[in-house]
Design a protein around this nucleic acid. Structure first.
Length: 424
RNA sequence: GGAGAAGUGGCCGAGCCGGCUGAAGGCGCUCGCCUGCUAAGCGAGUGUAGGAGUGAAUGCUCCUACCGAGGGUUCGAAUCCCUCCUUCUCCGCCA
């Protein structure tokens, strides 16, 4: 959520920033400014009447104490009370409308995020060289199915399309990746957390997924809960309504959870295998940091993501995502895309966003200390390991002519008996 | 799932037969005094949000709201009523 004061004081720069996302900001901003003026007008009226009532009520109390008649004043205040009620109802309507509009405005992109839409995203750099195969490489499904490591048919029978059973060595690979990631992140100061995956609406609104991505979320009507699409949500909401100690910043967490996404609107896209499924597991990092430190924290997180892909031996490229392709809460986002030989292109495996104070304002996460305060912190999130996609990249890049998968050296200490080949 | 109890400021803890209680008291914290050092002692201060006014300005003045959240009753609610959330105890159930 943006600061209404910023919109009030600098409507033109806000408008311009939103245009860089390609957002049709005009109508919404004009309406916001209108509602803001209206709100303050009505607020002043309400407060004046409340002030009057408070003063006279005080007199009534004195009169009663002195055993004098106050029925005239009581009568008058009864009328004032009715007026207040009318004005308060009006104020509530205006504030609700203002809130509703405000919730829909996305974050302002950082100047260093390229303007425009997806095709305007900028490739920053590459690492590694795509492997030359002296045989025709198989994709993850053709590698996994013959050895019963991935079972889409039964996944579909049990749960529908885009669900899978992961079996055998791939299960060991999954937990090796998790343990590898958690140890690395813990060593860098991120506190490991297993999060709730069902959260209230407040957490969804607070992190900015609602109302924008309502249709992407599995909603449990009976209990008013939502299945999270990423542990970013419960990690961010963990400090909702709190004032953190400035000295403790940055507060860093690494979460592990299953993630659930309806993938509405993705019909026909990436339908093969486990690249895009309704349920996957992910290790995610999250940071609450001082407002002036978030760009450097963002780079730090990206460097961790790069380190991991390098240790896994996966060629990738780093992309600075264009403003128009940012999620609503993000001001800037880096994606790392790993090379997939069978698709002959780079595909997203991690994503790292600086949400500046957008989520913090909604969640009311603040800090105080020598710099004063309470002031809003900045929040950042990044994928450490998206298990499914990382498994795909490992399988495809490290496959052998025999249809096995050679494990990255960095993972062997986490695999049974230091397993060198999966599927054997 | 059933039956009870409770949620007050950074923390503890009064108030809860409605009226200078934004909130006693204590602890903590900040500043000052005192003191070989420390401790003790003395004095002052110490919430958040929104708004109006004012100033060149860190600001200042005033108003409003907030005693888990949201409604209601009343001239007036931390105090009464309703709904929800959370915590604790007992029973049941279970991993």
């Amino acid at each position: 959520m943006l600061d209404i004061k910023l919109i009030r004081n600098e409507p033109d720069s806000v408008r311009e920033a939103l245009r860089r996302r390609g957002a049709h900001a005009e109508a919404a901003l004009d309406r916001l400014l209108e509602l803001d003026v209206l709100r303050r007008q009505v607020l002043v009226q309400v407060e004046e009447k409340r002030s009057l009532r408070n003063a006279v009520s005080e007199q009534i109390a004195q009169a009663k104490k002195a055993k004098q008649d106050a029925s005239g004043q009581i009568e008058a205040m009864r009328a004032v009370g009715d007026e207040i009620k009318v004005l308060e109802a009006r104020l509530r309507e205006i504030e609700a409308a203002l809130e509703e509009e405000l919730l829909q405005v996305p974050n302002l992109p950082e100047p260093s995020a390229p303007a425009g839409s997806e095709e305007d995203s900028m490739v920053m750099h590459h690492w590694g060289t795509p492997r030359e195969f002296n045989f025709t490489p198989l994709d993850h499904l053709d590698l996994g199915q013959p050895r019963d490591l991935i079972d889409m048919e039964r996944g579909a029978r049990t749960s529908g399309s885009r669900f899978a059973y992961l079996k055998g060595d791939l299960v060991f690979l999954q937990f090796a990746l998790v343990q590898f990631a958690l140890e690395k992140l813990a060593a860098k100061g991120f506190r490991p957390v297993v999060v709730p995956v069902l959260v209230r609406d407040e957490a969804m609104y607070g992190t900015g997924f609602f109302p924008t991505d309502l249709q992407q979320v599995y909603h449990i009507e009976a209990d008013g809960l939502n299945l999270v699409g990423t542990s970013e949500v419960p990690l961010a909401a963990m400090h909702m309504d709190e004032i953190l100690e400035e000295a403790d910043l940055p507060v860093r967490y690494v979460g592990y959870s299953s993630c659930f996404r309806r993938e509405a609107g993705a019909a026909g896209k990436d339908t093969r295998g486990i690249f895009r499924v309704h349920q996957f597991d992910k290790v995610e990092m999250f940071s609450f940091c001082a407002p002036d430190k978030s760009p450097e924290e963002h780079d730090f997180m990206r460097s961790i993501e790069e380190e991991i892909l390098q240790e896994l031996g996966l060629p990738y490229r780093a992309v600075n995502i264009a403003a128009g392709d940012l999620g609503a809460p993000a001001a800037k986002k880096y994606d790392l895309e790993a090379w997939l030989p069978t698709q002959d292109r780079y595909r997203e495996v991690t994503s790292c966003s600086n949400c500046t104070d957008y989520q913090a304002r909604r969640l009311k996460v603040r800090a105080k200390g020598e710099k004063g305060g309470p002031y809003l912190v900045h929040t950042l999130n990044g994928t450490v390991v998206a298990i499914g996609r990382t498994i795909i990249a490992i399988m495809e890049n490290h496959q052998t002519e025999e249809g096995l998968v050679e494990t990255p050296a960095a993972l062997r200490r986490y695999l049974p008996a230091g397993k060198e080949f999966l599927g054997a």
